[in-house]
């Protein structure tokens, strides 16, 4: 069967703010009707600023939090409507790498126990000896010597912990990994190690990544395709080269132009957005970006634009998307 590995359709998540006496308030639409596909072997990067819903989306896809509506088809199975037991079985095939290299490893468990967690959950090791060998092999794959097996997380640096987290994620042999800001908590000189490791593993194990990040330079390096999120929606999605060379949505343009470039000779042609990201609990009408958009018009306040193709598998959700592709300075 060929086709997308993952198909997300109209996925929604509404967080109900606690309003006393069991009466839910209006609710925060953290993820607001998102649809996209992920092809086997590719890296789809999800970028956006804090509060845009990208981490929530990653967790919804893995069903770590229940969806409020929509579909997540993974390897042909709709995860949203799956029972607890079959869903747990599916976790063998999809795993997660977390942002926080300190919090995501239990301080009371040895490296071997942490890495073997999926092995134990799915009973993949026939014996204790086989389990140790599997852990040693996994550690080796992430560039750690097997001698660290009986140590505890607190003895490791951020980068080493992130390697341990990656070893755990690949332990059950998944085809798909959601990586939630896996390098943003790491030092600059260690980021490259982890990025390279993730790329090596993708090649050697044929992994598919959903890579959640806010650093556009990291995304440019690792992604095959890029999806830009703003206030719970995807505003632009397309092949990396096209999105970076010719961003169609004014938000993408602003984001790219705001990202600092480590080169003093690049002229600053910044589009500086005014104002803050509106709170998702009080999202603007129409196009959610219209309050900060430099080209907003009356129509944008009334009518929410849908994603529409702008050529080459590239889509943007802007009423004026085709009218103003501005190339970023290169």
């Amino acid at each position: 069967m060929t086709g997308p590995l993952l198909s997300v359709r109209d996925l929604r998540k509404v967080f109900n703010a606690q309003a006393g006496f069991g009466r839910p308030s209006a609710g925060v639409r953290a993820v607001d009707g998102i649809s996209f596909d992920v092809e086997p072997g590719e890296t789809l990067a999800l970028v956006g600023e804090s509060g845009c819903g990208k981490s929530t989306l990653g967790r919804l896809i893995l069903q770590l939090i229940p969806a409020s509506g929509g579909q997540v088809m993974f390897e042909g199975v709709d995860l949203v409507h799956l029972g607890t037991r079959p869903l747990r079985e599916m976790r063998r095939r999809m795993q997660m790498v977390f942002q926080d290299p300190f919090g995501s490893l239990s301080p009371r468990r040895s490296v071997a126990d942490i890495v073997a967690e999926p092995i134990d959950s799915f009973g993949l090791a026939p014996s204790r000896k086989a389990r140790r060998e599997m852990v040693a092999d996994l550690l080796h794959q992430v560039g750690l010597p097997s001698s660290v097996m009986d140590r505890y997380p607190r003895q490791f640096s951020g980068g080493q912990r992130q390697r341990i987290g990656i070893a755990r994620a690949i332990a059950a042999g998944p085809s798909f990994i959601v990586a939630d800001e896996p390098v943003s908590a790491l030092d600059v000189s260690v980021q490259a190690q982890v990025i390279n490791l993730m790329q090596d593993l993708q090649e050697s194990r044929g992994l598919t990544y959903l890579f959640i990040a806010h650093d556009l330079a990291v995304v440019r390096h690792i992604a095959t395709r890029v999806a830009v999120m703003y206030l719970g929606r995807i505003v632009e999605i397309g092949p990396k080269a096209r999105v970076y060379a010719a961003p169609h949505h004014p938000y993408t343009q602003a984001l790219l132009s705001a990202a600092p470039n480590p080169d003093p000779d690049i002229p600053k042609r910044q589009i500086i957005l005014t104002g803050d990201v509106p709170s998702p609990s009080n999202a603007p009408s129409g196009c959610a970006f219209h309050t900060r958009c430099p080209i907003a018009q009356a129509r944008c306040r009334m009518e929410a634009p849908e994603l529409r193709p702008v050529g080459g598998g590239h889509q943007a959700a802007c009423h004026f998307a085709t009218d103003h592709p501005i190339p970023v300075p290169s």
């Binding site: 640096s157 980068g159 080493q160 030092d187 600059v188 000189s189 260690v190 980021q191 490259a192 190690q193 990025i195 390279n196 790329q199 650093d215 556009l216 330079a217 990291v218 440019r220 390096h221 690792i222 970076y244 790219l256 990202a259 470039n261 480590p262 080169d263 690049i266 300075p329 290169s330």
Partner: peptide, 24 residues
């Protein structure tokens, strides 16, 4: 030098990042 080579760039494609071995 290593630091500058190890960071991904917004304006150019690098196939593989230069990595500084070890930790701070």
């Amino acid at each position: 030098r290593a630091l500058l080579q190890s960071i991904p760039r917004l304006d150019e494609e690098r196939r593989r990042l230069h990595q500084i071995p070890g930790n701070v």
